[in-house]
Design a protein around this nucleic acid. Structure first.
Lengths: 151, 151
DNA sequence: CATCATGTTACTTGTCTTGTTACGATCTGC
DNA sequence: GCAGATCGTAACAAGACAAGTAACATGATG
């Protein structure tokens, strides 16, 4: 568990959900992600609140995709899961008195802000159906092997 | 302790070391950074191995800057401390069998690689004397207040 | 040789995601 | 309406990793 994999996992799930049109239970999704249902519900709660998926209780319930992949960007998903910290590095002190440290924070902070802006711009420029299309391309390139995790 | 602050701390220290020409003990540096001497030695070990600073034991010993700030970039310091992970996010699985997950990893990985390249480029383009100059500018702008942490 | 200072190891702490257990709420179908 | 499926949520443990801490060895100075 070295990285925060919530964004990666949610992208994975959403594309799979688009492939089977019927609802998927947290249990099925958990098996797909090699985790357990509680983690799935916890992480997907944000997607539900933002209206990208819907969850239904009871017999025959589960999760369904509400909006088409073409209308969801990676940035949308990132925001829906709560915009977790992108960087592992950061300043020692956010509001230092020392002017030297302030100067360090400015230079380092500017560089990080630029990198973050670039990353978010990239996330904003890609919709989920683009990833789905990449998958289809891979699929036709090697149709012999098993193509997907428990889908 | 939310972030890895080693880079930030080392930049801070190196610039201070340039200001007083005599050597600084780990104890003095620790007070400056609000930490303790062991952390200082641990983190600065990389800088010593790369030849940016020198440490001397015994009476009158301590740490001294070996190379001028103009010859040290932020990237140099980042590398000297062991190139710690920059990002807090990442893929759920580095070598997934599922082609969907592979496609997710490619898109996400490309975006992160670009952001990382930009950040490292920025770190490479700034030398420590630039930060020192920023500090001097701040200093002349408000000379009345205390300017520096225990320097 | 006494003292100062670094070098290093081992262990603890703090923080955050993930994993897990437990329990309550709600919906379906018989 | 009862049984079972399924989500919702709270509480807590596990794992990872930087940072904090304590103990002790090593080496240099006077």
């Amino acid at each position: 568990m070295r990285n925060d994999s919530r964004l990666s996992r949610m992208l994975h799930v959403l594309i799979h959900m688009d492939k089977h049109q019927h609802s998927a239970t947290s249990d099925m999704i958990a098996k797909m992600l090699n985790t357990n249902p509680v983690v799935v519900r916890r992480t997907m709660a944000g997607l539900r609140e933002q209206g990208y998926v819907r969850s239904e209780k009871g017999h025959g319930g589960g999760w369904t995709l509400v909006r088409p992949l073409s209308e969801i960007t990676l940035l949308d998903v990132y925001r829906a899961i709560g915009e977790p910290h992108l960087f592992a590095i950061g300043p020692a002190d956010d509001q230092p008195e020392c002017l030297v440290e302030q100067a360090v924070n400015v230079v380092l902070g500017d560089a990080m802000k630029e990198a973050q802006a670039l990353l978010l711009r990239r996330l904003d420029s890609v919709t989920l159906d683009k990833i789905a299309a990449d998958f289809e391309a891979k699929l036709t390139a090697r149709p012999a092997t098993s193509y997907s995790c428990a889908s």
